[in-house]
């Protein structure tokens, strides 16, 4: 059973086609990273999933319901984080807390909120608009975690956060999903943070089929090699991208065997991601 199912999803803004016939699933209990460079349609997909955008064609199901027409019960099972930590900044922290506590009364776990909140040195009476981006993110994430969703959709959680807050977030997320009963779909531009966290990744590329692959498989099979600059690449199968750097040429892809004269590169997730999507 999948938490999210996207079938033949196509979307255009006027004449500008974002993507066509996109298919992917987020299985229950899995953490899926939706990755891609700017402009490939990550936010568009997230907006469709959040029910704020009607796709040109295709459908998107969340817990089996059309994402554009979710029942109240299903909505209560989804935790949404909007890019830029959008919230009611004109409220005080305690008012925002009360709002979520009331709206998600049946599922609300206040200890999850206060566990995160007490790490902040701010008063409950402080207005959200007066908090720093990091503090604000903790308040919002605390409330999302406290509403105990079965599915988390996190759009660019890392935007505006320093390393400390990003690490704090990842730590809490790991704790939140440790029972393997929560599903997560997340996007970020700081992909290295997701190492060891993801179960699956979806990498979107402009005008190409997205890659939907298990994280471990991707990390095991996607490789990079350094070759002399003037190497003829026509005889090498499986290249996804290449670029020249000084006297060497680097190639990335799913290679069945190591090319002649090649020196394997040690790739972290970001290197692999860039290797797949191309650097520039």
């Amino acid at each position: 059973m999948n938490a999210i199912e996207c079938r033949n999803l196509s979307h255009s803004f006027g004449k500008n086609r974002i993507y066509e016939k996109l298919n992917f699933n987020v299985p229950r209990g899995k953490v899926v990273g939706l990755l891609g460079k700017n402009g490939v349609g990550k936010s568009t997909t997230i907006n469709i999933l959040m029910g704020n955008l009607e796709p040109t064609s295709g459908e998107c199901l969340i817990f089996g319901e059309d994402s554009n027409n979710l029942s109240a019960n299903t909505k209560s099972r989804i935790g949404l984080l909007y890019e830029g930590y959008v919230t009611y900044d004109y409220l005080k922290i305690k008012d925002l807390y009360k709002l979520y506590e009331k709206e998600y009364a049946a599922r609300f776990k206040k200890e999850l909120f206060f566990d995160l909140f007490k790490k902040l040195t701010v008063s409950e009476n402080q207005k959200i608009s007066t908090l720093s981006c990091g503090q604000r993110s903790q308040v919002i994430l605390g409330l999302i975690f406290a509403s105990d969703p079965d599915l988390l959709i996190l759009d660019d959680y890392s935007l505006g956060l320093d390393t400390g807050y990003r690490r704090l977030f990842i730590d809490y997320l790991k704790k939140f999903i440790e029972n393997k009963d929560k599903s997560v779909l997340m996007t970020t531009h700081i992909v290295n943070d997701l190492d060891e966290l993801l179960d699956e990744i979806i990498i979107m590329r402009k005008g190409k089929e997205p890659l939907n692959i298990g994280y471990k498989k991707f990390r095991d099979t996607f490789r990079g090699f350094s070759l002399p600059r003037n190497t003829n690449l026509e005889n090498i199968d499986g290249i996804e991208s290449s670029f020249k750097l000084g006297d060497e040429m680097q190639i990335f892809g799913f290679f069945k065997k190591k090319p002649i004269n090649a020196k394997e590169l040690k790739l972290n997730l970001e290197d692999a991601f860039l290797g797949y999507t191309g650097r520039y």
């Binding site: 704020n52 109240a72 949404l80 830029g84 959008v86 919230t87 998600y104």
Partner: peptide, 21 residues
């Protein structure tokens, strides 16, 4: 306007009730 700023309306529409409510 407060609902339109930063697209907060997206949040408001996501509270666990029907959209009409």
């Amino acid at each position: 306007f407060h609902e339109r700023i930063n697209g907060r309306l997206r949040l408001s529409l996501h509270f666990p009730h029907s959209s009409a409510r």
